[in-house]
Design a binder for these strands. Structure first.
Length: 783
DNA sequence: GGCCCTCGAGTTCA
DNA sequence: CTCGAGGGCC
């Protein structure tokens, strides 16, 4: 056998194996050989072809790496025009589409071939005798650009048809797109290597195909789905579109796995919803779904209106990503003084709603995105709801912009903005002298989960605060009807958008009476709500509840030395200090006094939990005070040597040594006691111990509930009861209701439209209850 | 010291 | 809902 024949055989063999591997990887999504083997074979083929250039053919897998640039794209006239599709944005428009077909054909229960509409670039591929010869963009539908060399680099496009019964000429229509994962990976690498970052997968695909240098295209992670046929010669096509898709699969083209055949309007709409629900989880961007009348005979009968077929339509999703322009970058001051930058943008429709503002979270985020005034930005509704800025379209940036920077002072009160070491947020140092923080504090105080003052919304708080009627939350409880009417009148003068009718006496009076009634109603409250309402940093609902159950009494809490808060589970140094800091401020204590004096009553005062007294003694007190060098062991030595706090305070330093402490520890303790505030804490701690002895009951039987020790998580929407009701009922049975799923979760109650928490529960194998199960469980354990 | 679990805080629109 | 960070446990 002559040597070249032998080599030609080997080359053919390698090509066949590589083609097969490609097909399994890119079309069947079922890789058959490891990447390393693929690379090895490709290298071998490359070497053989380099040595024997006369054996290179255009359909060799080596040619996918990209040919030499040509300079420009030739025009290609499509044998059969590439159609555009009519669009439907609502169910009604789809209904009209279906009805017209039914009327014209005189049939109903029609079968439609349906598939997701990829957000990519439509192309046409021409095969002659089974070999890929030319590919073109859609262009204006009649004439496109010849991008054959670029298309060759896309591995999902067969260079040679598979199977046997090929048509002599075949034109395949489909979409070139960039898979999301590949898009992300490409951009991450581009960022590191300083390459060009792609704006989005669609632009990435379009730009890549129009690269003049195919070697560049070869670097881009493009993929392809076939969705139809243009010209075909030499083979009889099946009778329906769905069968044609099957034929395309056999010839080696990737066809969307989501494609299906459904019946009638309801079938179409169900499919639309199903794909819509899946949209976020699909590995590529789609902008809708396409419906095509399945049988070709019907298609022929329907015909075309101008360039669009009457037998097909694209049902579009509301866009999830949009471009808009930043009008300004503002900052907001929150309840805790946290300063958060946000952008005001030209209004734009995203995911079906009009968006004008989006948060930028913090200064780091602004720096990361480098958002500037006047920038064109791409925004997205994350997690289906909250708009976020995805990135800036730098090419569209106007000249002369400068990076945004955090102001040095609070825009509301002028206090300096400060940032804690290692923290991301800047805070206004003005505390309650800052009007913004005061308003937020009042809003928090009045909110549903706190004091629940109905009708006290943002606007009224704004007026009450700006016009000086309410400085602190306690002022709410001294408002009179006259105050409110006067305030309303003055507020309406400032803002003349209020309709005259609302300004009129009667309406205003009723509003004021209702608000006073709501304020009065809030006077009776629970310790838990009250503590939460104060708005202490790090004390949210759950910590407030824990404090309330452990201490039971506001007066006890108000005068407790802060280290004792660490007795409560889940309260550590940071949170305890924060509570202490709040209570140390005379202004805050004054507000509490005022609230109580103006009739706020805590209705559920009770003795501290016995568990509190159990774990508390002089030794634990000393440990909690965090005295340098005083460890648990040392604290216990001290506690056994001194009968009381007073004895410890009175003792000279050398007595610490005789109590068994090493000299340096004794010195550290003595030094610590030198500080009056610290010594005062010890005294207060001693007093608290004494008080607790007087009021703490003996350990009582804790009521047993059927769900004691279990952790439940609620997700989705329940129909028979609200989430809060469900939470309260589960807690009444002893369960702890938490907000996030982990492997410690006992069960998850999943209502309608449950989201990521349900997924996570399934992933972790956590028990899942539906609403029915919850209701029957609750019914079976009615007290 | 490093994980994993929670909690707190901030957020948008109709 | 998501992010960041506190708290507890190994």
């Amino acid at each position: 056998m002559p040597k070249t024949t032998h080599i030609a055989t080997r080359i053919a063999e390698l090509r066949a194996q590589l083609d097969d591997a490609n097909y399994r990887y890119h079309v069947l999504d079922d890789p058959a050989i490891p990447d390393a083997d693929y690379d090895r074979m490709l290298r071998e083929l490359d070497e053989l072809e380099a040595a024997h250039p006369e054996l290179i053919t255009a359909d060799s897998p080596t040619q996918r790496v990209g040919a030499v640039p040509t300079g420009s794209f030739a025009q290609v006239r499509h044998a059969i025009p590439m159609l555009s599709l009519g669009n439907a944005f609502s169910d009604e428009e789809v209904a009209v589409f279906v009805r017209k077909i039914e009327e014209r054909l005189g049939r109903d229960a029609l079968a439609f071939s349906v598939e997701p509409k990829l957000d990519g670039l439509a192309i046409s591929l021409r095969y002659e005798d089974g070999r890929f010869v030319q590919g073109a963009t859609r262009g204006d539908g009649a004439t496109g650009e010849d991008v054959t060399a670029n298309l060759r680099t896309i591995k999902a496009i067969p260079l040679q048809l598979r199977g046997k019964d090929w048509p002599r000429v075949l034109e395949v229509r489909g979409e070139v797109y960039m898979p999301l994962a590949a898009f992300k990976a490409y951009n991450e690498r581009a960022l590191v290597e300083g390459g060009k970052v792609l704006a989005n997968p669609r632009n990435g695909a379009a730009g890549s195909l129009r690269q003049l240098d195919p070697r560049m295209t070869a670097q881009r992670p493009l993929a392809f789905y076939a969705y139809g046929i243009g010209l075909v010669e030499g083979v009889e096509l099946p009778e329906t579109h769905s069968q044609t898709l099957g034929r395309l699969r056999q010839w080696g083209f990737p066809v969307s796995g989501e494609s299906d055949v459904v019946e009638g309007l309801q079938g179409l709409l169900d499919y639309y919803r199903a794909i819509g629900d899946k949209r976020d989880r699909l590995p590529f961007d789609i902008d809708g779904v396409v419906y095509k009348l399945d049988d070709y005979e019907g298609q022929a009968e329907m015909g075309f209106v101008s360039r669009a077929p009457r037998w097909a339509i694209a049902h579009k999703f509301p866009a999830q990503e949009q471009m808009t322009v930043v009008e300004s970058i503002e900052v907001n001051v929150g309840r805790t003084g946290a300063v958060t930058p946000w952008v005001l943008m030209q209004p734009v429709q995203v995911g079906g709603v009009t968006v004008t503002r989006a948060t930028l979270h913090n200064a780091d985020q602004v720096a990361r995105l480098d958002v500037r005034n006047g920038d064109t930005v791409i925004i997205r509704r994350a997690g289906d709801v909250i708009p976020e800025v995805v990135r800036v379209v730098v090419e569209k940036r106007p000249a002369g912009t400068r990076p945004w920077s955090m102001p040095s002072h609070c825009p509301v009160c002028g206090s300096e903005l400060v940032r804690e070491e290692g923290e991301a947020v800047w805070r206004c140092s003005g505390e309650l002298t800052c009007a913004a923080q005061r308003k937020e504090a009042i809003g928090h105080f009045a909110s549903r989960r706190a004091m629940d003052i109905e009708g006290l919304g943002e606007r009224f708080i704004e007026s009450l605060s700006d016009l000086g009627y309410v400085q602190s939350v306690a002022d709410l409880y001294k408002l009179t009807l006259d105050d409110l009417l006067e305030m309303k009148r003055r507020a309406d003068e400032r803002d003349d958008t209020t309709p005259e009718t609302v300004k009129s006496g009667k309406v205003a009076t009723r509003w004021a009476e209702n608000l006073l009634e709501a304020i009065d109603h809030s006077r009776n409250t629970t310790l838990e709500r009250f503590l939460y309402a104060l708005g202490i940093q790090h004390v949210g609902e759950s910590t407030a509840k824990a404090l309330a159950t452990w201490f039971g009494d506001l007066e006890l809490i108000r005068h407790l030395p802060w280290p004792l808060f660490k007795r409560v589970p889940d309260v550590g140094g940071e949170v305890a200090r924060s509570i202490g800091h709040f209570l140390d401020q005379a202004g805050n204590q004054q507000v509490i006094d005022d609230l109580l004096a103006r009739g706020v009553t805590i209705t559920d005062t009770h003795p501290p939990t016995p568990k509190l007294r159990d774990g508390l003694n002089l030794a634990t007190l000393l440990v909690d005070l965090e005295i340098p060098k005083v460890t648990r062991v040392r604290a216990e030595q001290l506690a056994s040597a001194f009968p009381s706090v007073q004895a410890l305070l009175d003792a000279p330093k050398h007595n610490f040594v005789s109590a068994g402490l090493p000299a340096d520890t004794a010195q550290a303790l003595a030094d610590w006691l030198e500080d009056e505030t610290q010594a005062g804490q010890l005294v207060a701690g001693g007093d608290a111990l004494a008080r607790l002895d007087a009021i703490t009951p003996a350990a009582a039987e804790v009521a047993q509930g059927p769900l004691d020790g279990q952790t439940a998580v609620l997700t989705g929407t329940l129909s028979a009861l609200s989430r809060d009701e469900a939470k309260a009922k589960l807690e009444a049975l002893g369960a702890k209701v938490s907000g996030s799923v982990s492997k410690k979760t006992s069960f998850v109650v999943a209502g309608e439209a449950a989201g990521s928490k349900l997924d996570k529960a399934q992933e972790l194998g956590v028990e899942i209850w539906d609403e029915e199960k919850l209701l029957s469980f609750l019914a079976g354990h009615e007290p």
